[in-house]
Amino acid sequence: MALPKFAATRSFHTELKTRINHYFEESGQRMTGDTSLIFKGVLLVSVMAALYVHLVFFTPAWGWALLECALLGCVIAAIGFNVMHDGAHGSFSRFAWVNKLAAYTLGVLGGSPYMWNSKHNLIHHTYTNIEGHDDDINIQPWMRMTPDQPKHALHRYQHFYFWALYCMLYTSWIFAMDYQKYFSRQIGAIGLKPMNTGEHVSFWGFKALNLLLYVALPIYMVGFWPWFAGFMLSTAVAGLVLSMVFQLAHTVEDAAFPVPHAITHKLEDEWAIHQVRTTANFATDNKVVSWLVGGLNFQIEHHLFPKISHVHYPAISKIVQQVCAEFDITYNNYARTRTAMLSHVMYLRQMGRAA
């Protein structure tokens, strides 16, 4: 499948970059994370380590254990949002080794940093919401996420059962999807570049470490069924939280799903306008939500400037909104999380029923 081609004009993107660069020059700040982000990262990793140690080595009573497992799932998602995500984009710290360390938290949690970089940084951030290229909107045949995907009878009810599928995201990610990409050498219709020896070792090393930490050792310490119940609960919570935050950014009623020209494969918009049209923000005035999801509720700013740490998104969002208004580009923003969630549900309902 030929890759889509964006419009050659870059006037919108050029104006955005000029104003954003001016903001950082005027404020004297670095575009990467600050000490508050380092503190948050240390805090989240410490909380996860404490929960893990208490669950595996001190075996709390069932009630406490289930509560801690649910909390563990939330913390896993929070580390993904706040630490791994910025680290993988090179925006967590001004030091490359710190960014690499932050990105590698994904490996400890069971995912593959290599596959994430290819799937998310390179493909999703380039071909956002383009059917056949953006693997994030490919949940076939279980769900229909775009107008160009085939519709099946079960899709009529997808706005009811999507919760269960989202809960399965984390386990399917670490136990199936990474391996499928590794052996097929493809992500969707796009082939992966050849992996070097270090990348192969990293892939299998992290997978082995995850199995040791989250499967073998807990089963040895607490037994199979207690481990199974706790593991399924924590991964279900993590999967649901991860899925909802990412889906609210792109699969809502106001997000666009551009289709390249059938022959030329060209798109109508330049890359930056494409990112704004295919993306939505939510609850940007809610500081608690912003803190917990690592600024991913400012998804428009993230897609336009992935190399800028999320700690700066509230400030630069005002600049982005102003430039969008000047270029007559709709800036999709849901005032509350529940409003964005309702829009996602209504979008799924629409996709399940529309021709």
Results as ranks from 00 to 15, higher is better:
residue 218 P to F: 06
residue 127 Y to A: 10
residue 92 F to M: 01
residue 110 G to Y: 04
residue 323 V to N: 05
residue 295 G to Q: 04
residue 205 G to F: 03
residue 128 T to C: 13
residue 235 T to I: 00
residue 76 I to A: 02
residue 40 K to S: 08
residue 24 F to I: 12
residue 98 V to Q: 02
residue 67 L to H: 07
residue 45 V to K: 11
residue 119 K to E: 01
residue 124 H to I: 08
residue 234 S to C: 13
residue 180 Q to E: 15
residue 283 A to P: 02
residue 36 S to C: 08
residue 122 L to R: 13
residue 253 E to L: 12
residue 221 M to C: 09
residue 67 L to M: 13
residue 32 T to Y: 01
residue 140 Q to V: 09
residue 214 Y to S: 09
residue 39 F to V: 15
residue 203 F to V: 04
residue 313 Y to R: 11
residue 96 A to D: 06
residue 64 W to P: 02
residue 265 H to A: 11
residue 183 F to W: 08
residue 271 W to C: 09
residue 221 M to V: 03
residue 147 P to R: 05
residue 78 A to K: 10
residue 212 L to G: 09
residue 230 G to H: 10
residue 215 V to G: 05
residue 70 A to N: 00
residue 229 A to H: 11
residue 322 Q to I: 04
residue 264 T to H: 03
residue 336 R to M: 02
residue 9 T to E: 12
residue 160 F to P: 03
residue 136 D to E: 00
residue 39 F to N: 09
residue 139 I to H: 06
residue 265 H to F: 11
residue 153 A to K: 15
residue 55 L to K: 06
residue 255 A to E: 08
residue 140 Q to K: 06
residue 185 R to W: 12
residue 258 P to W: 02
residue 203 F to Y: 10
residue 217 L to N: 03
residue 216 A to M: 12
residue 174 I to M: 11
residue 11 S to C: 12
residue 152 H to P: 04
residue 174 I to E: 07
residue 82 N to V: 14
residue 178 D to C: 02
residue 175 F to K: 07
residue 154 L to N: 11
residue 347 Y to N: 14
residue 237 V to T: 00
residue 235 T to D: 01
residue 274 H to W: 11
residue 204 W to M: 10
residue 10 R to Y: 00
residue 51 L to S: 00
residue 172 S to T: 11
residue 181 K to Q: 13
residue 347 Y to T: 07
residue 342 L to N: 03
residue 102 A to K: 03
residue 250 H to V: 04
residue 29 Q to D: 15
residue 5 K to P: 03
residue 240 L to E: 04
residue 27 S to E: 09
residue 113 P to T: 11
residue 83 V to K: 00
residue 188 G to A: 01
residue 18 T to H: 15
residue 234 S to D: 02
residue 317 S to F: 10
residue 96 A to P: 11
residue 313 Y to F: 13
residue 348 L to H: 00
residue 69 C to S: 06
residue 176 A to G: 10
residue 106 L to K: 03
residue 100 K to P: 06
residue 171 T to F: 14
residue 165 L to R: 01
residue 68 E to G: 10
residue 259 V to G: 02
residue 80 G to S: 07
residue 313 Y to P: 01
residue 289 V to G: 12
residue 248 L to Y: 07
residue 132 G to W: 04
residue 203 F to G: 05
residue 52 Y to V: 01
residue 117 N to K: 15
residue 252 V to S: 04
residue 274 H to R: 11
residue 127 Y to H: 03
residue 126 T to G: 06
residue 166 Y to A: 03
residue 232 M to S: 13
residue 324 C to K: 07
residue 343 S to M: 11
residue 189 A to I: 13
residue 340 A to N: 07
residue 88 A to I: 13
residue 202 S to I: 14
residue 88 A to E: 12
residue 352 G to T: 11
residue 267 L to E: 05
residue 4 P to R: 00
residue 337 T to K: 05
residue 125 H to I: 07
residue 329 I to S: 04
residue 214 Y to C: 05
residue 86 D to M: 05
residue 87 G to T: 08
residue 158 Q to T: 12
residue 208 A to G: 00
residue 268 E to R: 14
residue 141 P to L: 08
